[in-house]
Simulated scan of single mutants.
Amino acid sequence: MARRLRPVGLDFIEVAPTRLVFAGRTTAAPEDVYRALAEEVEGWPSWFRAVTLARPTHGGAGREIKLAGGIRFQETIMAADPERRYAYRVDTTNAPGIRALLEEWLLTPSGSGTHVQWTFAADGPTAVRFALTAARPGLGHSFRSAVRTLDLRLAERRRGADQ
């Protein structure tokens, strides 16, 4: 059953009781990574294995996300700064115990590619905060795998455009 979460602003990224931060690197340019994140929402399942469905809602101002295992999110896009930042707040979810959730993707040019930082900011009772902290290794693995897969897909797209 979906529950409404506490609405939070972008400042929640800095003050959330649980903050999990992961970093990776792509050979793709920031504009290509941003396009995959923010403009090609329905493509997420092709590179982020945990995501089984992603689609824009409310004319692109929101997203519907389904994860492997049945977790669902209805989200509001909080920041869409081309080539720099993409952030969204979870408004409703069927994930138990979470009170507030905001995720942010920061993109920074790095040599001939992009440094990608994903921050997962959440609030919930002590048991939820403990569970999220315990899930850090799995979330990190999922993020790193997703960034590698996205990078491969973007490289294939570049090669196809060059031919």
Results as ranks from 00 to 15, higher is better:
Ala2Tyr: 00
Arg3Trp: 09
Gly9Trp: 10
Asp11Pro: 02
Asp11Ile: 04
Ile13Ala: 02
Val15Ile: 14
Val15Gln: 04
Val21Ser: 10
Val21Glu: 10
Val21Gln: 08
Ala23Asp: 13
Gly24Asp: 13
Arg25Pro: 03
Ala28His: 03
Pro30Met: 09
Pro30Arg: 11
Glu31Arg: 14
Asp32Val: 00
Leu37Val: 08
Leu37Gly: 04
Ala38Ser: 13
Glu40Ile: 06
Glu40Ala: 13
Glu42Ser: 15
Gly43Glu: 15
Pro45Leu: 05
Trp47Gln: 04
Arg49Met: 07
Thr52Asn: 09
Leu53Asn: 12
Ala54Val: 06
Ala61Pro: 02
Ala61Cys: 09
Arg63Pro: 07
Leu67Ile: 03
Gly70Trp: 09
Arg72His: 13
Gln74Asn: 02
Glu75Tyr: 01
Thr76Glu: 09
Met78Asn: 03
Tyr86Lys: 06
Tyr88Met: 13
Thr92Val: 06
Thr92Met: 01
Asn94Gln: 08
Ala95Met: 10
Gly97Pro: 02
Ile98Val: 15
Arg99Gly: 13
Leu107Phe: 10
Pro109Arg: 07
Ser110Arg: 14
Gln117Thr: 11
Trp118Ile: 09
Phe120Pro: 00
Ala121Asp: 11
Ala122Val: 09
Asp123Trp: 05
Pro125Ser: 11
Pro125Asn: 13
Thr126Arg: 12
Ala127Val: 01
Phe130Thr: 15
Ala131Gly: 15
Thr133Arg: 15
Thr133Tyr: 04
Ala134Leu: 14
Ala135Glu: 02
Ala135His: 04
Pro137Val: 12
Leu139Asn: 06
Gly140Val: 05
Phe143Gly: 07
Val147Asp: 04
Leu150Glu: 05
Asp151Leu: 10
Ala155Ser: 09
Ala155Glu: 14
